[in-house]
Amino acid sequence: MDNDGFIIKIRKMKKIYSIGRISVPALKGIDLDIKSGELIAVMGPSGSGKSTLMNIIGVLDTPTSGSYFLDGVDVGKVKDNELAVIRNKKIGFVFQTFNLLSRVNLFGNVELPLIYSRERLRDKKQKILEAIDSVGLTDWIRHKPNELSGGEKQRVAIARALVNQPSIILADEPTGNLDSRTGEEIMGIFQRLNREGKTIVVVTHEMAIARHTRRIIFLKDGRISGQEMVGNQLSAEEILEKMPKLDDVI
């Protein structure tokens, strides 16, 4: 179908959780379009439904009603197994808690999406090395996640999200567990990837993080309460330059 350059098209989306006899509406009718190549933030207090929205956009969950087109595919009409394929091909996840496999080294973690990819890849190793290189961790390739710092772990997670060349990267509070400098570094990577053409959605509750994107969607009580086009987008590079370096502090 014609997706008018929109990679995500959400119409009248509702999500209701039923816990026993009680129904809890988490999303009460969302309309959202995201263009290919956008860098966008979703903000809202806890309980606003941003995690639910994120899970549905990431095809980990399905809406109760409404429609969701991802890259032209009506996700509502797709079966469980095909949802897994969509997650594998079209989506790269970056989580607040990194969610790396602790027993597997860096290479193995980044390789993971390719293991579940149904395609035969000849240049598989090359792809993994490139993804690791793009987050600057080539020297750590045989190390396990517990030997890395938080920021490095998140960079591994980004490499893993990149390796299958997805249409969209979803980052759920990617800087939530990091100090401000490392958080800046991560946002810098996202900004660079966005310049290279990647569509990136960042969920956050920090305005300072959200201002690194070009558009902010505000969620409240399961509805979009407003949006803001960011006028003077923050550049992670510039901020990092102004920040005191570790060497200066010591």
């Binding site: 897994a84 997650r87 996840f93 969610n99 790396l100 579940y116 990819s117």
Partner: peptide, 16 residues
């Protein structure tokens, strides 16, 4: 459980 969650989020099917 968490590992299973990660694998599924990344594209593992139930069968995998």
């Amino acid at each position: 459980t968490r590992e299973i969650g990660i694998r599924k989020a990344i594209g593992a099917t139930n069968r995998d």
